[in-house]
Design a protein around this nucleic acid. Structure first.
Lengths: 208, 208
DNA sequence: ACCTGAACACCGTTCAAGT
DNA sequence: ACCTGAACACCGTTCAAGT
């Protein structure tokens, strides 16, 4: 079954498979060796150590996140589409993205999207420092939102529960609000609405 | 030196100290036992196991994040002040906050701030589902921003570096923008500007 | 009720030795 | 150039035994 000798690429592929299926904590050198049918120490020859194996894995993921194609007519719509596209891509690889984040490469992964945002913000008429601020605001908001979402999905049940705290009098005579906050957030809708509000705010503001 | 018998509270305090000083990875049961001058297994009697020790530590941190007092005259200013206050609190305990996040209690930690936001959004005239959406948008943005910041600070040097990618022609004849994106972000300023833009967008938007 | 040491099953990593 | 097993220094956890 084993084809000739072990390859760095084979090691990376097996490691990625382990992470995809069982999360990063399942990626131990010994399990990986068992999966590959080799001695643990062979892996060290090809990838150095566990740390650089993870580095390589993360590098791979960053490369996979290709260019983003904005859609829509207005700059606002196109910016929103960039943010939504990015969100879709990231949500498809939760474990690997978590690793990218933990290793501090989230920003680099975002660079193609940043270039698209620069283009759109320009089209909307912003220039210079104002434009840079707008790009970064959208970037931070999108990445940040994803991190919060990841957090929520990992632990869907919060101890006291948001719902319990918005029971009766707390909501100051606004039962509709209390009900809305008791329900789990519609994250897709909230994301789109937030980005749109932010972009509108950024394009409208004079200085303040 | 050792005063009578070991206490659950002593264990938690020593564990918190280890995390504060050297990060969560330094908190091993054996190091903790050494710090306390007891056998490793004594700790198990008081806190169960490492997992529930971390739970208790995180619970403690969540409790410490007290109520937030908004300042400023307009609703927008007061909402921005809530977000900034929260940011200050979180930045004072980076390691413990990271643990809160990893254990999925970020949202619960945010509840006092959420109540303050409800009050302010109401004062701004929003009601029902619209108000709930605004509260959550600010909440997600603030928490998300902090997570991104934490990420940036952990790895200040990005491999290609944002600067390298905004060299010459890339920035589409806007040298001021290129320069701005090449510089590291002024996170304090960016945070305030983002929250303000978001809130303005939320309060202004009709429906769409 | 509280503490202990010994033991178990796991880690990542190094190293001398093989081919 | 590539692979190996043995060994080291670490983990978290269990358990029978002490007081």
């Amino acid at each position: 079954m084993s084809r000739s000798s072990l390859t760095r690429e084979e090691v990376l592929e097996a490691a990625a498979a382990l992470v995809r299926q069982h999360g990063p904590e399942a990626l131990t050198m010994r399990k990986l060796a068992a999966e590959l049918g080799t001695a643990v120490t062979s892996i060290y020859w090809h990838v150095g150590n566990r740390e650089s194996l993870l580095d390589a894995l993360v590098e791979r993921t960053v490369q996979e996140m290709g260019a983003i194609r904005p859609t829509g007519r207005t700059p606002v719509a196109r910016i929103v589409s960039v943010a939504r596209g990015l969100r879709r891509e990231l949500r498809a690889r939760p474990h690997l993205i978590a690793m990218v984040h933990e290793r501090g490469l989230t920003e680099r992964m975002f660079l193609p999207a940043q270039q698209a945002l620069v283009h759109e913000v320009h089209a909307a008429g912003l220039r210079g420092a104002r434009a840079a601020e707008a790009v970064r605001a959208v970037q931070f908001q999108t990445v940040g939102f994803l991190l919060v979402e990841r957090n929520r999905e990992r632990s869907p049940v919060q101890s006291p529960g948001e719902g319990d705290l918005w029971g009766v009098a707390t909501a100051e005579h606004d039962p509709a609000l209390a009900r809305a906050l008791a329900r789990p957030a519609d994250q897709d809708r909230l994301f789109t609405a937030s980005v749109r509000a932010l972009v509108n705010g950024l394009l409208a503001a004079g200085g303040t």
